[in-house]
Write a protein that binds this DNA or RNA. Sequence first.
DNA 1: GGTGCGCAATGAATCGATTCATTCCCCTAG
DNA 2: CTAGGGGAATGAATCGATTCATTGCGCACC
Lengths: 322, 322
Amino acid sequence: MGTVSNVINRPEAVLPQTRARVLAAIEELGYVRSESARQLRAGRSRIMALLVLDMGNPFFVDVARGAERAARAAGLGVMVCNSGQSPTEEAEYLGLFAEQRVCGVLVTPADATGRNLEAFSRHRIPFVLVDRVASGTGTCAVSVDDVRGGALGVGHLVSAGHRSVAYVSGPGDLHQIRDRREGALSALADAGLPPEALVEIPSDRLDVAAGRDAGARLLGLVPRPTAVFCANDLLALGVLQALYAAGVRVPHDIAIVGYDDIEFAAAAAVPLTSVRQPAVVMGRMAAELLLEEADDEGGTHEHRSVVLQPELVVRASSATPR
Amino acid sequence: MGTVSNVINRPEAVLPQTRARVLAAIEELGYVRSESARQLRAGRSRIMALLVLDMGNPFFVDVARGAERAARAAGLGVMVCNSGQSPTEEAEYLGLFAEQRVCGVLVTPADATGRNLEAFSRHRIPFVLVDRVASGTGTCAVSVDDVRGGALGVGHLVSAGHRSVAYVSGPGDLHQIRDRREGALSALADAGLPPEALVEIPSDRLDVAAGRDAGARLLGLVPRPTAVFCANDLLALGVLQALYAAGVRVPHDIAIVGYDDIEFAAAAAVPLTSVRQPAVVMGRMAAELLLEEADDEGGTHEHRSVVLQPELVVRASSATPR
DNA sequence: GGTGCGCAATGAATCGATTCATTCCCCTAG
DNA sequence: CTAGGGGAATGAATCGATTCATTGCGCACC
């Protein structure tokens, strides 16, 4: 009924007594408006999707927090999903989002080819890249300057006197990982050190267990680097534990620098020096960009790429050696 | 059109050539079926909601993982939300779920009075309690035996010779917290120790920062307990750090036992002894119970309460003292 | 007293998938 | 040759909120 709709959406257009009568009926019947019906009419839902690489990583939990806050301020719900770095999963979720007619998608792409997103863009559902620079001007994106982050982390170690730094990396197809290495190399170059001063310890995952493995390999290196820079804090925590278990003292024998500055980095027994990413801000800004794009009726929207700056947080794990 | 619907939902009822023609058209137009419309007709959506206390706690991330896996196996999406232990937020989200006509809700109640859920139950949307025993037989629930968990943790400490144990608790209105204390007390009683042997260090949150605070207070206690049992691992990690910073050796001076056995417990420099909760299994079972209840047409569904057993995982933080 | 204006409420159309009754065709059997 | 039956496609009704055109009512002004 039209009047009921008015009572809910434009109360001022209804006589107070009618309004009261309708509200009473609503209360009595326990009526709850159906979102499906509204959605059908409106053509899109009031839900924003967030697709991240790994919900087990507190970094992404923070991104989710920021996005959720911004979305709820705008009266939207958030659906948080996990691609687990699998392009297949990612494609599946994107399909789900299209069917749901979500009002927009925040996504940290797992598929480096960009094929999934290209396919998705046909649905005319706005999306914003998170923690990834836009390839063209056709997309909004919020990212952190990973090259600078890598430079910050390794620059800090180099200026503390380290001449050989291990880099515990992650899946090579992730942009973030490559950029951080690039920054690390540039920091070495700035200090007049050769690229060989960066000893890469490859890893195919970005979790604590992978960090433990990497730590074990680090211990086997001859000569052994005096410092290690990790592509994220989960790896760093794993490395820290492996070193501790082997009786290697941090930072006395080996200094450690992580990346992300998750809560657990500061909470480690030897608090981790880490390159802080403004995760919550990133989630919030991404959501805001998305809302802007989604609310845009007249095609006036201009895609924007926001690049945030990382920040070095020095803690005990990298105190000056020797 | 009816035929299109048949092509998608009952392909065998359509002639192969017609089917091919329809599929070709679908492909050409980039057609994606609208979930809103299906939902409107079906009366409920194909999304399951999960409302947890704190997404910053890896324990709940694991629960979410388990639930998501089970839900996706059944072709459903999962919407993970965060009440932040606030009954108000909880009520808001439950309202949102009702509007969305989600097919069911998995919830770790933040509102101890049960008023929110009572109100929600009017909507006839099935829900399953997670990490909480059912109050009556009117609800499905999956929980872990927290009394037993408390007894395991403190029993372990007592049998290692500790005579005075601190209990870092959490918000007093949470069932889990009270049950774990009860178990702790029973373990003391079993060892012939008086209730006063358990020194409670109250805390109003369950995160690492609260653990640091608690650790500081623990250090000020006279006489100082020789062991501490924490209501969850985040608190334990905070306590561990506070002790480490103060130069108190773990486990030599003070032993620590946590609860949940999150990944970071094992990853700590001094790996934490912890009472493991089968979080992933809990999420999976809760989702399965919910699916069972939601699929039940004839009202044949019998509400069930599943109680899982915790398990003590002994690590370095509680090695025998003295 | 009659006409006109304006505010409020009513009713119908719409969104898109589903479902079921109906129609349509073709083939077979009487 | 026709009637009947079965398999396949069509079309209309449905879900519930929204929106807009229409109706209806009351009051004021001529």
